[in-house]
Design a protein around this nucleic acid. Structure first.
Lengths: 133, 133
DNA sequence: TTTCGTGCAAAAGTTTTGCAAGCCC
DNA sequence: GGGCTTGCAAAACTTTTGCACGAAA
């Protein structure tokens, strides 16, 4: 028998660099079509498949994660601190909220014996631009 | 000229009755394939399209709503009180929580001018069955 | 050079839509 | 009877996969 095959580290390619950078500099979570469209400006021949493959890779590395809103899968770079999302029912835009409405430190035991490790909150309503002033 | 066309009320059909009832009596949120499968027992010729159309109708009526977990769209009957979900990272089961960790009455204005109408919370961690005692 | 990654195209999965026939009112 | 609904099938999307060529190490 042989030692466990040590997995070669992922290669650094232009595609991965661009996708990763776009994700990091985005204002909020992005859907695949949107991300792909933005990347096409720099990589005219980029295929959607590569976007999906790269996103999967980034998720495995913990560098990105998925957020699902209204049945649509959006992707977001990790490491920008604890935050939540606000979805506007009027304009459909998704905002990032930096305040957190719940007090549930990891390790909290919720009634019934549920050990909470993480939580996700999404608020729905009207964003500042759509709310009647 | 004529008066504003008063929208005819939706008809009561066997399909709608069955789908609605199955959703109400379900233990938790159901996916379309699962819901369709259960309905086939009573309506052998029911098509998936009707399930989707009925779910859309129920949502418009506020009688059902969508819950997305792990990228899968699940549907749940409304009117069973305010609740949230707990997803166990070990066994993958989704539980319904009847306590709510946030205090955000509809109409609350969140910092930044976001008018909150509703909120959704999902907790992740270990359920009572999977947590080391 | 060797292997991994990419582009392209086809496949698989999900949700929507068009249309003729059927059912509700 | 008239119009909304349904079933079926095709279309539109979304995400994954296979493969030969191109690029990183």
């Amino acid at each position: 028998m042989s030692a466990a095959p040590s997995p070669a580290p992922p290669r650094e390619t232009r595609q991965r660099e661009v996708i990763s950078r776009l994700l990091q500099s985005a204002e909020g979570p992005l859907g695949v079509p949107e991300l792909h469209a933005r990347a096409l400006n720099e990589l005219p021949r980029l295929g959607v498949a590569t976007v999906y493959r790269t996103l999967k890779l980034l998720q495995e590395q913990g560098a990105a994660h998925i957020v699902t809103l209204d049945g649509e899968n959006l992707y977001e770079a990790s490491g920008r601190g604890h935050h939540h999302h606000f979805s506007c029912r009027q304009c459909g835009r998704v905002y990032t909220l930096n305040t957190c409405p719940v007090a549930l430190p990891a390790g909290t035991v919720y009634p019934g014996g549920f050990v909470v490790e993480a939580h996700e909150v999404t608020l729905y309503g009207l964003c500042p631009a759509c709310a009647p002033r």
